[in-house]
Design a protein around this nucleic acid. Structure first.
Length: 852
RNA sequence: GCCGGUGUGGUGGAAUUGGUAGACACGCGGGAUUCAAAAUCCCGUUCCUUCGGGAGUGCGGGUUCGAUUCCCGCCGCCGGUACCA
């Protein structure tokens, strides 16, 4: 292939056009206040999930989503929108730090090298980014505002009445004590069991544990003093507001499940005179509770265990403690547990039931204790079977149900005053009864935990916090950004102590106070980057009011980003965290929309040519540089979009790239032909003449379809339509220039280089064409009149099977169409001798003759 | 187990307010051009067939004049998630 002559000189003109766009700032999006800003223009904000600039550079998965937003952006621009289409770098991260550990070199250097490589690669693909807005989360100016937003969280609490974030100063005015205030902050310090990874030298958020475990790192639980963000205070809003977003239903569900809201009741049992509260979603089954289970770690276990059970209980607790959470769930093929010897009193009927401990009850969810109703809970049922505990039916299943353990809604039985009530009513009644007697209350539980926000790493934003006399204080805004000092040695301390503790001079301040040494997780920067793009160079605010109002206006929609494209891997973490921060800033009055991203689209993974996930170890990774080198940027862009539907998983194929490359070659040869020496010259078939009917039809059908397909993100079918169009134009002996120009114009968002180049050739030779680049022309309008045909082909079916075809006038009345169909000899062969029962005429499509 | 997605030629895929299944490409076969090749252009390409036709969109039913599309019941694959009480 490398020996082969190129079908068109992409290596010459692609870099030239890229330079042209850069020098002319063609894709600069003016902000309010700029001279070229036009307040009349509607805005469109198309956002890509910014990449982590890894050392290995871009792979072909990156440009999939980027090309999609690029096509939309160019298309919207041509339709008169002021388009915000930015790019930046999520540049904090562990690999740069590990590089620093190995080399002793500051991670900033490695990060910058990687960013430079990524930028070079992206520019070589001709994306219409406004590079004036480029940001990196590691830039000191960016860190400044990340820390500033943290301080907003630190200085805020959630008002219980309104559920909204409010400034801490309100609590001070009310005269709350330091402790009381600290207990309400959105950013707070907690001494809780955390996920500590010795070999990573840091703690992890619950959400991150699985990812790192799967990469082979160990994670253990231990209590540590950590910074947390009170995301649980926003749980309901994070669920409810999903309804207003145009997101894939699957992603919304993932978030709902992650937050895991469940309504139920807390019920107080009594064990040895002590109150023990359990959480249940089925308070209506209280009469069927035949035993109780505590989590092995439950603090009451020691107290209630009888002497004869003591050693067995100790033994069991030890086994549980040695298992990680993962093993505990993975090995859960069979229920295990131990009787404590103690009993609990069921508040509803004063009955004594045995108390067990078992590892299927988790200390971290609900209250760490459950009432077990084996008749109506599969886990309890399995456990009761194994340990021969009585099973009492308290919910009558609807007729016909054959479940051995019925867990659905039915009507209450064996339940005293609840008998006969349907499950929902029974729930309500028993909850009311419990509340009346002071034995329990209605509660909502969430799986979502508060966000563990501190890390012990070097390459992250330091907390803008100092400690004095055991209290923490936010530093003054004027001291931002607070950057970490360079270190001699970036190795983790090995202890659960942050690396920054090594920088004694930086940590210890003159007045005796010390700096917080933890840093923020990588998520911090990506929580608000879409805001910064709107006003990337603002030195006084994280975003100006004017920029915010213009770019992030939802225009009636919940979120200001009009289109956000990226991978599913961020379905929960990034998208949940960013929504959380956005809501805090919204409550505090800095933002006008309650949600960040109105429309979200997930691009499907691009697999290797072998159908496997691309990975270095499999050796099936395709580097875009290689593709650009062989076929050019336009071919890569076009192929990425032609592969299949954007959201679908699909395998890479170099043969497929060659296919679209050949198509672009044919487009090139609509305008050029080769002379004797093999040089390209203007094609002699090109004429400055009016197109005929058929040509107009295909060209205008293409304008229509491509426009509609872009709006619906169906790029693959848009491209096949353009292929058909160019195939048709290629057959013409006299090719009207205006038709070629129209094809180039609709192809431009997909393949911007070759189309601009060819249009440049055309306009030089045909002076009637508009004298400007395609990128500054408006999207062409199609003429409906060209699309309709006078004569149409209709199918003749007999009993639903195609037997013949006929050509009729488009205005032919039904009766005439039917008559013509009945006259078809081919059709007659199939219904001869049978009775014609009816004839169905679908105008413009077919006639079906039903006969038997 | 639960949630979401998906199943169409040798391959990627197209077609859904129910109306010609396989658009557009890839691959393959044949031809033109060439000393030859590459590139290019043209033709063919779901399967079976006694050449009349018949079958066909994961499988089995149903609704309908007509189902890839709607309904019921299964199966496979991909992704996520899991003793959450």
């Amino acid at each position: 292939m490398s020996q082969r002559r190129k079908q068109f000189p992409f290596d010459e003109f692609e870099p030239r056009w890229q330079q042209h766009w850069e020098e002319n700032k063609t894709f600069h999006a003016p902000n309010p206040g700029e001279q070229s800003f036009d307040p009349e223009k509607p805005k469109f904000y198309a956002l890509d999930m910014f990449p982590y600039p890894s050392g290995s550079g871009l792979h072909v998965g990156h440009p999939e989503g980027y090309t999609a937003t690029d096509i939309i952006s160019r298309y919207k621009r041509m339709n008169g929108f002021n388009v915000l289409h930015p790019m930046g770098w999520d540049s904090f991260g562990l690999p740069a730090e590990q590089h620093a550990i190995k080399t002793g070199e500051h991670p900033r250097i490695n990060t910058e090298n990687n960013v430079n490589n990524f930028r070079r690669q992206l520019k070589s693909l001709g994306f219409a980014y406004d590079w004036d807005r480029e940001i990196a989360t590691t830039d000191p100016e960016y860190v400044k505002w990340t820390q500033w937003i943290f301080l907003q969280l630190y200085h805020s609490y959630v008002c219980e009445e309104t559920g909204k974030a409010r400034p801490i100063s309100e609590l001070e005015e009310k005269g709350l004590s330091r402790e009381e205030i600290d207990a309400k902050r959105l950013a707070f310090v907690a001494n809780t069991p955390v996920n500590w990874s010795p070999d990573l030298g840091t703690v992890l958020a619950n959400e991150e544990v699985e990812e790192w475990r799967s990469k082979g790192h160990t994670v253990e639980r231990r209590p540590l003093r950590q910074w947390m963000l009170r995301i649980t205070a926003f749980a309901d809003r994070l669920i409810d507001d999903l309804d207003d977003l145009d997101w894939p239903e699957g992603i919304k569900n993932l978030q709902r499940n992650w937050i895991g809201r469940s309504e139920g009741a807390e019920v107080d049992f009594t064990i040895a005179g002590e109150k023990v509260t359990v959480f249940t979603t089925r308070p209506d089954t209280l009469f069927g509770a035949t035993y109780m289970v505590l989590a092995p770690e439950h603090p009451l276990v020691d107290k209630i265990t009888t002497d004869e059970q003591k050693s067995a209980v100790e033994e069991y607790r030890k086994v549980c403690a040695s298992k990680s959470d993962l093993q505990r769930t993975e090995l859960a093929t069979e229920k295990t547990g131990i009787f404590t010897g103690g009993t609990a009193i069921n508040p509803v009927n004063e009955q004594e039931i045995p108390v067990w401990i078992a590892d299927y009850v988790m200390m971290g969810y609900g209250t760490g204790a459950i009432m077990a109703v084996p008749a109506h809970d599969e886990r309890d049922f399995e456990f009761a079977e194994k340990f021969e505990i009585p099973v009492i039916e308290v919910v009558k299943a609807p007729a016909g149900n054959t479940d051995t353990c019925f867990c659905g809604n039915g009507s209450a039985v064996n339940s005293g005053f609840l008998d006969g009530l349907a499950t929902p009513e029974a729930k309500e009644k028993i909850t009311g009864w419990l509340e009346e007697k002071g034995l329990g209350k209605k509660t909502i539980n969430y799986k979502l935990r508060d966000w563990l926000f501190s890390r012990q790493r070097y390459w992250g934003e330091p907390f803008p916090i100092i400690w004095k006399d055991g209290n923490h204080y936010g530093i003054d805004e004027s001291e931002l950004p607070l950057l970490a000092p360079p270190l001699e040695d970036y190795k983790p301390t090995g202890k659960p102590e942050a690396i920054l503790a090594k920088a004694k001079e930086w940590v210890e301040l003159e007045d005796g106070s010390v700096r917080e040494t933890n840093t923020m997780p990588q998520w911090a920067g990506s929580c608000w980057y879409y805001l910064r793009y709107c006003d990337a160079r603002n030195e006084n605010e994280f975003i100006s009011k004017e920029a915010e109002e213009y770019w992030l206006s939802g225009n009636g929609k919940a979120g200001g980003v009009d289109l956000y494209i990226g991978g599913t891997e961020h379905a929960v973490l990034h998208l949940l965290y960013a929504r959380f921060w956005h809501k805090v800033l919204f409550d505090l009055g800095y933002l006008k929309t309650p949600e960040p991203f109105h429309k979200l689209v997930n691009q499907g993974l691009i697999m290797g040519e072998d159908g496997q996930k691309m990975s270095k170890s499999r050796g099936n990774v395709v580097n875009p540089d290689e593709v650009v080198d062989l076929y050019g940027a336009d071919s890569l862009r076009l192929y990425e979009m032609f592969m299949g539907p954007l959201e679908q998983v699909k395998p890479w194929s170099m043969k497929g790239v060659e296919g679209v490359y050949r198509f672009l070659g044919r487009v090139w040869r609509l305008v050029h032909e080769s002379d004797q020496e093999g040089n390209w010259q203007l094609r002699s078939a090109l004429v400055d003449a009016k197109p005929d009917k058929a040509t107009n039809k295909v060209v205008h059908a293409t304008i229509k379809k491509v426009g509609e397909d872009i709006e619906n993100l169906r790029f693959n079918t848009a491209i096949s339509q353009m292929m058909e169009c160019s195939n048709e134009l290629g057959k013409l002996e006299k090719l009207p220039v205006s038709s070629v120009a129209l094809l180039l114009q609709v192809l431009n968002p997909f393949a911007p280089h070759i189309t601009e180049e060819l249009y440049g050739v055309l306009k030089k030779n045909f002076k009637d064409l508009p004298d400007s680049d395609l990128s500054s022309q408006t999207w062409p309008e199609y003429k409906e009149a060209y699309l309709v045909e006078d004569e149409i082909e209709m199918v003749i079916q007999v009993n639903g099977k195609v037997r013949d075809r006929m050509t009729v006038s488009k205005d032919a009345p039904k009766e005439e169409v039917e008559k013509l169909a009945m006259q078809s000899e081919k059709a007659q062969n199939f219904f001869e001798g049978n009775t014609v029962r009816k004839v169905i005429v679908v105008p413009g499509r077919l006639v079906n003759i039903v006969a038997n």
